[in-house]
Amino acid sequence: MKNVTAFAPATVANVSCGFDILGFAVEEMGDKVTVSLSDTPGVRVVRIEGDGGRLPYETDKNTCSVALKAFAEHIGFEGGLEIELFKGLPLGSGMGSSAASSVAALEAANVLLGNPLEKKDLLPFAMKAEGVACGAEHADNVAPSLLGGFVLIRSYHPLDVTKLHVPKGLYCTLVHPHFELNTADSRSVLRQQVSLKDAIIQSGNIAGLVAGLFQEDMGLISRSLQDVIAEPSRSVLIPGFDEVKNAVKDIGALGVGISGSGPTTFILSPAQDVAYAAKEACLKVFEKIGLDVDIYVSAVNTKGTYVINKS
């Protein structure tokens, strides 16, 4: 093989109560990356499409190259790798755009070099790229994009990640207003300390959500999709968030939350028809607001990143 192309999916991080420790992957939307062998030693970014000319080619700033440099150093690879990035996700959307890029690059490079590492062992290198992208080496986007499904990060030090059960029929509606919200800015509004009362409420909701997923208890999932820590501060930055919550509360949706750092909002539903009903309700909200919006309906992606071509 001389080159490998991989796809990595968009993700929803935090999932309301699980700030920096929960995330899940979605279908179809994502980034593609081709990694090729080169006679010139080192990692280079040679092509970027779909970003409107905004992403850097510098290897210490691009998430793909940051991840691959760390990966190559870890496995002792001293040859050359060239990266071509094809963006399918909007920047600053809250759908794990930077994560999908680095994960696709790592999957492609790992396969190209003969799979020296298990897929799960690629995670630390993707986290390094997240540190460059938003100032924090969190895993709630990169882990589900890499592994698929719902993922829990039990601990960062040491890193302890586990996949959770995905109930049958669970669907997600993603509502992306044409409005960009920088991750660093979204993190800057968060409280640095929380009350004991809020910590207890949030812990109960995290435990309830995990239990609800394994028991396929949609009622428990719904009751647990409550965030008393990040959402109160972040929701004021997101146009239409409160209106979306009100619009879908009577159609059978399980809950509404901020996808990652926003401005995308996610709506979890127990069935596909409810997810599409949520889409229609949200279209009416943004038509009234007068803001353009993209809305996607997707099942939870249990596959994660995968190779789509090698030659």
Rank of each mutant, 00 (worst) to 15 (best):
M1Y: 12
M1L: 07
T11H: 05
V12G: 03
V12L: 09
A13E: 01
V15R: 03
V15K: 06
F19D: 01
F19L: 06
E27V: 09
M29C: 11
M29E: 14
G30D: 01
T34C: 11
V35F: 01
V35T: 02
L37S: 06
T40G: 00
T40D: 04
G42K: 01
G52F: 08
N62V: 13
N62A: 15
S65H: 07
V66C: 09
H74E: 14
F77I: 02
G79H: 05
G80Y: 01
E82W: 08
E84P: 04
L85H: 01
F86A: 10
K87T: 06
G88S: 10
G92K: 03
G92W: 00
G96C: 01
S98D: 00
A109Y: 08
L113A: 05
G114N: 12
N115Y: 15
P116I: 11
P116A: 13
K119S: 09
K120L: 12
D121L: 12
L123Q: 10
F125S: 12
A126R: 13
A126C: 11
K128H: 08
V132N: 11
G135Y: 12
H138S: 08
H138R: 08
H138E: 09
N141A: 04
V142S: 12
A143P: 09
S145C: 13
L147I: 07
F150T: 04
L152N: 00
Y156H: 09
H157K: 15
P158C: 13
L159I: 00
C172I: 10
C172S: 12
C172G: 07
P177M: 03
E180I: 04
A184V: 11
S186V: 05
S186C: 09
S188L: 06
L196N: 09
K197L: 13
I201V: 14
I206L: 10
A207T: 08
V210E: 02
Q215N: 14
E216K: 05
G219C: 06
I221R: 00
S224C: 07
L225K: 06
V228A: 14
V228H: 13
V228E: 03
S233Q: 15
S233A: 14
R234T: 05
V244Q: 12
D250W: 03
A253G: 02
G255P: 07
S259C: 10
L268S: 04
S269K: 06
A281I: 04
L283M: 11
F286M: 01
I289G: 15
D294N: 13
S298A: 12
S298K: 03
G304I: 10
T305W: 03
V307D: 14
N309E: 15
K310C: 02
